[in-house]
């Protein structure tokens, strides 16, 4: 049952991941990405990592992609659909990606750990949300605070930028 669900979620994720780059319609691409995120979240949840899984949905599918969609819908989609495919560039990109894939495979193939089958993990009994929180606020408190400052600076930067553009009009 679990294996079947794994393949369902993995296939969902991969098929819609490919659909993101193959679709000519930007809205279709954005929605494919959402479905791909949902597949990824399912995989996380099957590993009992509920927190990461649901944050994946909450942040990416629920917030980031809504904003993306919001912007895309204001574009002229017809122009985007009619745009010619640049074949040499596409071929170049495919070659680079293929070479990179071969490199990754050859490196992983040399790792002995990658060939081992690990014993199944014990079912987690601890609350993963509490675990993440405790770890963040004890072991990684300083980086956490730094990230907080970074996000604050970014927020202020966005506000300043958007306000300045308004003043110029």
């Amino acid at each position: 049952m679990q294996l079947f669900l794994f393949w369902c979620a993995a296939l969902l994720m991969l098929v819609f991941g490919v659909a993101v780059i193959l679709n000519r319609n930007p809205v279709a691409s954005a929605l494919s990405l959402v479905v791909s995120f949902l597949g990824l979240a399912t995989l996380f949840m099957m590993l009992d990592a509920y927190f990461i899984g649901i944050i994946q949905v909450l942040v990416y599918a629920g917030a980031v992609m809504v904003l993306f969609l919001f912007i895309i819908m204001l574009l002229d989609l017809r122009a985007e659909n009619l745009r010619k495919i640049n074949w040499p560039a596409t071929a170049g990109g495919a070659v680079v990606a293929f070479v990179f894939l071969i490199q990754v495979l050859s490196v992983i193939g040399r790792l002995t750990d990658a060939k081992k089958t690990f014993p199944p993990l014990a079912r987690s009994t601890i609350d993963d949300v509490r675990n993440v929180g405790v770890t963040l606020f004890t072991n990684f408190n300083f980086p956490f605070q730094v990230i907080g400052v970074l996000v604050l600076v970014a927020t202020i930067g966005v506000v300043v930028l958007s306000k300045r553009e308004l003043a110029n009009k």
Binding site: F51, I55, A61
Partner: peptide, 25 residues
């Protein structure tokens, strides 16, 4: 009975906007 109850509510609830946005578009 998942241990992320309320986050689930918010995450799935936030997907509700897609129906409205796509319908409008």
């Amino acid at each position: 009975d998942v241990n992320i109850g309320i986050l689930w509510v918010f995450a799935i609830g936030s997907l509700g906007v897609y129906g409205i946005v796509i319908g409008g578009w």
